[in-house]
Design a protein around this nucleic acid. Structure first.
Length: 274
DNA sequence: CCGGACGCCTGTCGGC
DNA sequence: TGCCGACAGGCGTCCG
């Protein structure tokens, strides 16, 4: 579910809501997510700690406390919301972090592809985070970097920009939308992209991610911001979910490929190739 | 080293 | 109405 814009939306919501709150308890109802939730560690370390900040790296939420940082990944179906402490949990509500204002930070994840990890004092050095590529919204990510990395790579460009070592946080929706904006065919081998195409691609990725963040992310079915409101970027999607429908630019029916097992819609006229 | 397939798990939807 | 397969926003691991 959540790609970078959705995770950023959640982080921004939490950042204006929970810093300054003190953790009063931790309730784990199911710990078998992608990896076991380190419940004992959380119970030992978190109660009494004041939440200092909520940050994001790639699609990871970083909950910063004086004693260390809690790392949360939402996988495919995760939600992170602040709900009243008395709200009865549903069957997919796996973790509650109780706060001193009577509310709790609740992790919901039906498919359990998400993860809760203890990051200690150097969370960016955690094995799952240490090899992540650049943040796409920073200046360190740009077309020149993409072009330098593209040398000798034969993979389809769409799979390549979804590789978190190349750029962090781009998932299926935004990969597809960015390639449409950049007028690049999703199946095009990376080494065939010239400097110009790499510039267009980097700018398109920044543009689509930024636009989605402004709209509060994409709610296809169940994504919610940390306060429960949906996102609105689904109304701005140009090719995702539009297979067979007319291209919004040229009216040609949208086609779709499967790349890496993921649907990859594109306009055969606006995105010629491979 | 590189690229692609698999598997984890639950829910939903379309076709018969 | 019920059943069954396909598919869904991610990603570490394994295999050729």
């Amino acid at each position: 579910m959540p790609e970078l814009p959705e995770v950023e939306t959640i982080c921004r919501g939490l950042a204006q809501r929970i810093p300054g709150r003190v953790v009063t308890g931790v309730v784990t109802r199911r710990s078998d997510l992608r990896w076991l939730i380190p419940h004992e560690t959380l119970v030992d370390l978190l109660p009494g700690e004041t939440i200092v900040a909520v940050n994001r790296r790639a699609k990871y939420v970083l909950l910063v406390l004086p004693v260390g940082t809690l790392i949360i990944h939402l996988g495919m179906s995760g939600l992170l919301r602040v709900v009243p402490g008395g709200e009865p949990p549903g069957r997919h509500d796996h973790l509650d972090i109780l706060l001193d204002d009577g509310y709790c930070l609740r992790l919901t994840d039906p498919r359990r592809f998400g993860a809760v990890l203890w990051g200690g004092s150097q969370p960016l050095n955690h094995p799952l985070l240490v090899h992540l590529g650049p943040e796409p919204l920073l200046d360190s990510f740009n077309g020149s970097l993409l072009h330098a990395l593209s040398v000798g790579r034969r993979r389809p460009v769409k799979s390549w920009i979804m590789d978190s070592r190349v750029v962090a946080g781009v998932g299926n929706i935004y990969a597809v939308e960015s390639l449409f904006v950049a007028n690049i065919h999703p199946g095009r081998p990376v080494h065939t992209l010239d400097w110009e195409a790499c510039q267009r691609l980097a700018l398109a990725i920044k543009d689509r991610l930024q636009a989605a963040i402004i709209q509060g992310g994409t709610t296809l079915r169940d994504f919610r911001q940390s306060d429960g409101r949906p996102g609105y970027f689904q109304q701005s999607l140009r090719v995702y979910g539009r297979e067979g429908m007319p291209c919004l630019t040229c009216s040609t029916p949208i086609k779709s490929l499967r790349l890496g097992g993921r649907s990859s819609p594109f306009c055969p006229v606006c995105q010629p190739g491979p």
